Amino acid sequence: MNKKRLKEYAVSYSFLLPFAVFFIVFTVIPIGYVFYLSLHDGNFLQAQFDWVGLKNFKDVLQTPDFQNAFKNTFIYMLIEVPVSQFLGIFFALLIKKKTRFSHVCEVIYFLPMLISMVVASVLISYILSNNGPLNLLFQVLGMKPISWLNGRFSAKMAVMILELWKGGTFFIFVYMSAMRSLPADCLESSRIDGANVVQETIYVVLPLIRNAIILCVTMNTIWQFQIFESVYMLTNGGPLGATQTVIYEIYQYSFKYYRVGFGAAASLVFLLVILLIYGLENLLLREKEQTKRRGENV
Rank of each mutant, 00 (worst) to 15 (best):
G238H: 07
P82A: 09
G42Y: 13
Q224R: 02
L6Y: 03
G32E: 04
R152A: 15
N130Y: 02
E200Y: 03
I75M: 08
R191S: 15
E281V: 05
P18D: 14
E8G: 04
L149G: 05
M176H: 14
V60I: 11
H40E: 03
Q290M: 06
P30A: 08
D193N: 14
V269N: 02
K156Q: 01
A158F: 12
A264G: 02
F138P: 08
I209T: 11
G53N: 13
L208M: 15
Y251F: 11
I277H: 01
F74R: 00
Y9T: 04
K3A: 12
K3S: 09
K55F: 07
C186F: 14
I214T: 05
V204H: 07
F173C: 15
D65T: 00
L128I: 04
P82M: 08
E106Y: 03
W223K: 02
V204A: 10
C216P: 03
G32A: 04
Y76R: 01
P64T: 09
V260H: 03
F171K: 06
L284P: 09
F262C: 05
N211F: 13
T63K: 03
R100G: 15
F23W: 15
Q85A: 11
A92Y: 12
L280W: 02
V204M: 12
N196I: 14
L141H: 05
K58H: 12
G279C: 13
T99W: 07
S254R: 03
K55N: 13
E287T: 15
V217E: 02
A264W: 01
D65L: 01
K96T: 07
I277K: 01
I79N: 03
S181A: 13
P112D: 15
R286F: 02
N211H: 08
G167F: 05
S254V: 02
V298G: 14
T201K: 11
N43D: 14
F90Q: 02
S129T: 09
I202V: 15
E296K: 12
L134Q: 09
V273Q: 08
L149A: 10
Q62K: 06
L136F: 12
G194D: 11
V174C: 14
Q67I: 00
M1C: 00
L240W: 11
D185Q: 13
P239V: 04
M113Q: 13
D185T: 08
L17C: 08
G32D: 04
I24S: 04
K166Y: 13
N297R: 13
A92H: 15
F70E: 02
F255T: 15
